[in-house]
Write a protein that binds this DNA or RNA. Sequence first.
DNA 1: ACACAAATGCAACTAGTAGTGCATTAAGGA
DNA 2: TCCTTAATGCACTACTAGTTGCATTTGTGT
Lengths: 212, 212
Amino acid sequence: MPSRSPTATREPIAKRPGGRSARVRRAVFDATLARLVSDGYQALTIESVAVAAGVNRTTIYRNWPTKAGLILAAAKDRSEALISTKGSGDLERDLVALLTSVAEYVTSPIGRALVIASLSEADDPEVREAREDFWRHRFQAARDLIGAAAGGGSSSLDAGVDGLIERLIAPLFLRAFITGAPLDGPFIRDTVRAALRVPGSGGETKPDTTMG
Amino acid sequence: MPSRSPTATREPIAKRPGGRSARVRRAVFDATLARLVSDGYQALTIESVAVAAGVNRTTIYRNWPTKAGLILAAAKDRSEALISTKGSGDLERDLVALLTSVAEYVTSPIGRALVIASLSEADDPEVREAREDFWRHRFQAARDLIGAAAGGGSSSLDAGVDGLIERLIAPLFLRAFITGAPLDGPFIRDTVRAALRVPGSGGETKPDTTMG
DNA sequence: ACACAAATGCAACTAGTAGTGCATTAAGGA
DNA sequence: TCCTTAATGCACTACTAGTTGCATTTGTGT
């Protein structure tokens, strides 16, 4: 086996992006995510994706040599406009809305499947980076909300913003993937209120924003 | 394929637990966890476990018909004395120690592999229950610590204990499995302090302790 | 419209894994 | 010690992943 990255694709040297290739690409990506949701990561086979997409196995193998690379490409292709960053200025309300959106994602079949798939390939540097990148963007949305509201009143939020964001988002993941407890409205509200009640001390650890 | 549970084992009707069977059992469990750490869940094959254990594949297939069941049995077999529940009475110190122990688990190869394996089989009721059971016990240890300290001074901890525990443990998981940020000492200390600083209001959501 | 080449389809092949019937070994009781 | 049978080992089949050579289709520039 040649020493290529497990998530390598043919895309960088694609010379015919139009017409048939575009149709194939879309059909394969749609089929990939559909099968990922219905079968889960490990049970997903290239064969089943090919059949669902109305495409030959060989085509998929040539364009996306590995399962992880295929799912990663399909996920990236669909990762747009998933988040509404614009806040009303009411910090608590905006954070509840943000966490509700994240909660919907991590409880949705596609969100759960993608998180689990990314963890199943935790050793693949590209997969790891893609996952951390995805959440880095979401964290940035939270930073924007808090930053906007901080100018409008709430003090003591300067130093510990990243820690605050962690304390907001983390309980959602714990319930969604570990304990299985429900992510309902009251839980989200209480999580936001608890996080906001913590006085911003100077002793906060700066979370590693490079997520290395 | 008969409609048996994917994690069924032969154990309940085992009639010869001594001698050879015991040796096989131990060898298989050790090999299973070793391969799980080195290869990961999806790449783990029964064949590789059998070779590592010096046992025939057939033996494994008959005793533990599925990969998930095998790993689950191996994990249960080793899930003893992983936790030190006894506290000193100093709540903050005890919680830091507890979180440090959890942090070591979720960053260790075996802990990571087990969490990921349990998520890869999220649809299997037995796997889900085993995972939730495991963490329920750890949460109980935290409850004991807090309960002991609560009698000794700290008030306002009665109602929101479960929420507090969630806010203690959750950031560890977020960093370990999502963002990849480090789980160092300062981070753990700050997590404990932030959680303890939250005034215990009456508005807390009772987390579903059945973890359904 | 035509030609060239890229991209896909097809078929055959290798390799490796899951799973099963039958023979063999050895545990536990008499 | 000997006998029964539970437990294990061996040999085999079936299936799936993944690869390759070649034919076919189809973009794209001329």
